[in-house]
Design a protein around this nucleic acid. Structure first.
Lengths: 231, 231
DNA sequence: ATTAAATGATAGGAATACTATCATAAATAA
DNA sequence: TTATTTATGATAGTATTCCTATCATTTAAT
């Protein structure tokens, strides 16, 4: 038996629940593929409709606009990732081991064969890297936030923040360190592949090096900051 | 005497040099104001033309499209910031003091009265925070990079990387740490103001706290990484 | 079997993202 | 000074994007 994980989505993100119909699932599935291939700027509901074999109006019945769809996809991803983290760190008691596992999950490409249902998590991971921050880097971030659109992201950040505090209760910046880990797991990946001179991984292009960098960054901070900074 | 600093811009970024005419300078000046006010997505050449009192076609004679204009503005900002850093760390010999100064410059809002010429550096700094990463988070990042559009950013990153290596020659990730500092100086600022629960500065909203966080992050990494990680 | 809900098909409108043309004004060179 | 290049203004026009509306038809629920 393979149990399907259902992620409870914010209802304000859609007009009609895309998980409730075949068309809706097709919208999710093919929007991921299209955004992955052509980028979010070039992505339009018309192109999506053509691929699916429906009409533009058909898509608009599910999502108000492509921004909402992007926010939906990112929210889904963060929800999925939080589940993965909770699941995979479930029986680990050592917070340091736990945090290392989290860094691994954040910085490691999702394997294609792990795909569940209609959303391709592997492609979605790539989309989050290249497009994820566009979900909140907008003028409407305030209203979107009021409507709780970023709750999954904030929840994930909070979970990681708690683990950080478990590692070192005296550490003063658990939440900022958590958001730094999340963002850098993605940005260093993007830089490594597209602007390699902004990283130290341009030659090998190995995820393992990003993980090593993040581990170094995080654990040197957590080890030392119980004491006063020397510099 | 107030000497005007001229930043040498990549000629492939524009069709006609905006610094060569009043109209061009107006395009730069008012695009910064418009993008600041309404965000990059809502910004159009038509609106810009109306504000300036010229026509859409007039703008298109200077910039191919609004993406190039954004890249121009960000490139200008990074060039300007590198100059500021070189200037303000000029006579400092201690790399640690130097790096602290860099972090301050990155994370501190530019004062309005420091404004030089037609580009408002204070607004530009805000634009970089909210829109800066959109300059490279695109499908054309590869071609844009080939045309050296991101050279000012990469140069700045390299400069900071060198200072990091001066602080600790054994540190393995000077470039990734440099890009992390740059990005986090901006992202933590954005989060603090718009998604405060992603940071530890939501209550005070003080830049000084971001600086303290970055200093802690950077110098704990640099202090310890001469030795092998304990964890 | 009746009603409600979801989809398909089509239309159309406002705004965006451009390109082209021509006349005029301003700067430069002969 | 005149001739000529160059920059701007004014206007038009096209393709695409973003979105709303309408109506017929199919599918699902009662």
């Amino acid at each position: 038996m393979k149990l399907q994980l259902q992620i409870k989505m914010n209802e304000a993100l859609f007009l009609r629940n895309p998980e409730s119909s075949e068309l809706g699932k097709n919208i999710l599935k093919h929007s991921v593929q299209l955004i992955y291939k052509g980028g979010f700027e070039a992505f339009t509901f018309k192109k999506l409709a053509e691929v699916i074999g429906t009409t533009e109006a058909g898509i608009y019945r599910y999502f108000e606009n492509k921004h909402k769809l992007l926010v939906y996809l990112t929210a889904w991803y963060w929800g999925w990732l939080e589940f993965q983290i909770n699941y995979q760190t479930n029986n680990i008691e050592d917070p340091i081991v736990k945090l290392k596992k989290v860094i691994n999950l954040l910085a490691t490409a999702v394997k294609d064969d792990e795909q569940t249902g209609y959303l391709n998590e592997s492609l979605l991971h790539q989309i989050i890297i290249a497009e994820g921050s566009k979900a909140y880097l907008t003028k409407q971030v305030g209203e979107d936030n009021k409507q709780q659109f970023f709750k999954p992201y904030k929840d994930l950040c909070a979970v990681i923040g708690v683990i950080i505090s478990e590692c070192n209760p005296a550490y003063k910046y658990p939440k900022s360190l958590a958001s730094t880990i999340i963002e850098m797991a993605h940005f260093q990946n993007f830089f490594m592949n597209h602007l390699p001179s902004l990283t130290d991984f341009g030659n090998t292009k190995e995820e393992a090096e990003i993980i090593a960098f993040l581990n170094n960054l995080v654990f040197s901070s957590l080890e030392k900051s119980a004491v006063e900074p020397r510099v």
